[in-house]
């Protein structure tokens, strides 16, 4: 959502140097839950961090269409196909809201897309895992969108206005994503033995990557303190991850599926589920570009961009023709 020009152009613009007086006033305002709007003065580091975070978020929505797109033509029923198409279309919308929010900080969408296509920008690692069966589409809706919601609900209170507003809109749309996934998973879990096996297999493969979506452990998150103080980040990675585990385990129980974690058990004293250690080697391997699908996803994005060039060109030609026609009419 954007307010972009209202914002990126003509305003205070990027600060040249951090002015200590303005910085103190900014910090105080944010600490008091005041919101920051695009043309307001902001520390350069705040701007940089948000551009990185919002653009990565946008790229995630954008690339996130690919694993599910893989199943559109093979959805088991027309109903599931219509639902999947609607969900994927929403994700494209989410990418647009977020690119718009990032643009309010003075970076152009073209620059962001170039960075993505050149492999310089990151997106969520979860989309570098393959969707091998239909159950994976169900698991993505249930777990991946479920995890995204936990993260995004917290971000609705982000100090940066355009980002927070985009999150509100996105969260409203996400809830159907999670529910349709759970419903599809339930159909399999309550289906034939083969279908149930497929559901379990998919849960086995998606559970850990879903937990990884919350990022590195708090022990290894160097930027967290400043980002928390600036309310760019509202809750720690481990707190959000715990919330996701606590809400999802009973959902799996209801389906009669087993989480692939022998250490998972309810801790009465903490009032939370304890769970096993994430495979951080795998986490960093995929982040650094060596997951199963990193290359394939990026190539698919580039191809889509290149193959869509004629559509963009045709739109421009159409606009020019229309402008010329109305000019000629005005001259008559």
């Amino acid at each position: 959502m954007s307010d972009a020009t209202l914002d990126s152009k003509g305003g205070a613009g990027p600060a040249v140097a951090d002015d200590p007086k303005r910085r103190a006033a900014f910090d105080a305002r944010v600490a008091a839950e005041g919101k920051v709007e695009p043309r307001d003065w902001m520390p350069e580091q705040y701007r940089k961090t948000l551009i990185r975070q919002i653009s990565q978020h946008a790229h995630s929505e954008y690339v996130g269409m690919l694993p599910e797109g893989n199943w559109v033509t093979r959805a088991p029923t027309l109903r599931r196909k219509a639902v999947l198409l609607a969900k994927i279309q929403d994700e494209a919308g989410h990418a647009l809201y977020l690119y718009g929010a990032a643009e309010t900080m003075g970076v152009s969408r073209a620059e962001m897309l170039d960075a993505l296509h050149e492999g310089k920008a990151k997106y969520s690692s979860i989309f570098n895992y393959p969707t091998l069966t239909w159950a994976d589409v169900a698991a993505i809706g249930w777990l991946v969108d479920g995890a995204a919601i936990v993260n995004q609900v917290a971000l609705q209170r982000c100090s940066y206005g355009p980002y927070a507003r985009a999150m509100v809109r996105i969260c409203k749309e996400e809830s159907f994503h999670q529910r349709q996934g759970y419903e599809a998973m339930m159909a399999l879990a309550q289906g034939s033995p083969d279908q149930k096996k497929m559901a379990q297999d998919s849960l086995n493969r998606w559970w850990w990557p879903s937990l990884m979506m919350f990022g590195p452990s708090d022990r290894d998150s160097p930027h967290s303190a400043q980002n928390m103080a600036w309310k760019i980040k509202r809750e720690s990675n481990d707190d959000l991850r715990q919330r996701f585990v606590d809400m999802t385990v009973p959902q799996a129980d209801y389906l009669g599926l087993t989480m692939p974690d022998p250490d998972l058990k309810w801790n009465e004293e903490r009032g939370h589920y304890d769970f096993g250690e994430i495979d951080w080697d795998e986490f960093w391997r995929v982040v650094k570009g060596n997951g199963v699908c990193n290359r394939e996803r990026l190539q698919a994005r580039r191809d889509a961009h290149d193959k869509g060039a004629w559509v963009r060109e045709a739109a421009v030609a159409h606009a020019e023709k229309r402008a010329a026609r109305s000019l000629a009419q005005a001259a008559e």
Partner: peptide
């Protein structure tokens, strides 16, 4: 396409209410 101008979008949610700014997009 990278030069497509940016448009601010205002939506009236139902008759009787104001158009309200809801975001922006690029279009030719």
């Amino acid at each position: 396409s990278s030069d497509w101008p940016l448009w601010e979008v205002f939506v009236r949610s139902r008759a009787g209410l104001n158009h309200k700014h809801c975001g922006s997009l690029h279009a030719p």
